[in-house]
């Protein structure tokens, strides 16, 4: 992947990405984060952070993080509980971009909808990374 977030201007909109909350992946996520509150319930509920993580993963397949990128802040809003097997669509845009002392400060807004087009999650990540590390 040649494209990284570092090369994207303010206003850049990522193409929508579709993905599924596959039971296998959700199990892997729950194991990775050791979520004891939702895991044993076993009724196919998905941790909301899993949706955020999978959305971010789908977007990173379009434009990777520059080496050394640092996550400064995060806002997330969850609109409904999700279950394994659901298909979702994530959209994102570079909402802000500034540069200070050779570091880029970037805000990326994310919106996730279900198969019916209803919003299920929205958020904004604030990232910083070295200027010039953006790749091509």
């Amino acid at each position: 992947m040649a494209l990284t977030l570092g090369s994207l201007p303010k206003g850049h909109r990522f193409p929508p990405v579709e993905f599924a909350l596959s039971p296998k992946w959700v199990r892997e996520y729950i194991a990775a984060v050791e979520d004891a509150a939702i895991g044993p319930a076993g009724d196919a509920l998905v941790p909301p952070m899993a949706v955020a993580a999978l959305s971010v993963r789908a977007l990173l397949e379009q434009a990777g993080l520059p080496p050394g990128a640092i996550h400064l802040g995060q806002e997330l809003t969850f609109s409904r509980a999700l279950h394994t097997g659901e298909r979702l669509t994530a959209e994102a845009a570079v909402a802000s971009r500034g540069e200070r002392q050779d570091w880029v400060l970037m805000g990326v807004e994310l919106a996730v909808r279900d198969a019916a087009g209803r919003p299920v999650m929205a958020g904004r990540a604030t990232l910083t990374f070295p200027a010039g590390g953006g790749g091509s």
């Binding site: 509920l45 997330l76 969850f78 409904r80």
Partner: peptide, 20 residues
């Protein structure tokens, strides 16, 4: 999120907001 799920159950999953 695990802590909030344990405290609020589905209310967190379906109507939570986090800003950190």
């Amino acid at each position: 999120s695990e802590m909030l799920t344990a405290a609020f159950g589905e209310a967190w999953l379906a109507g939570g907001r986090l800003k950190v």
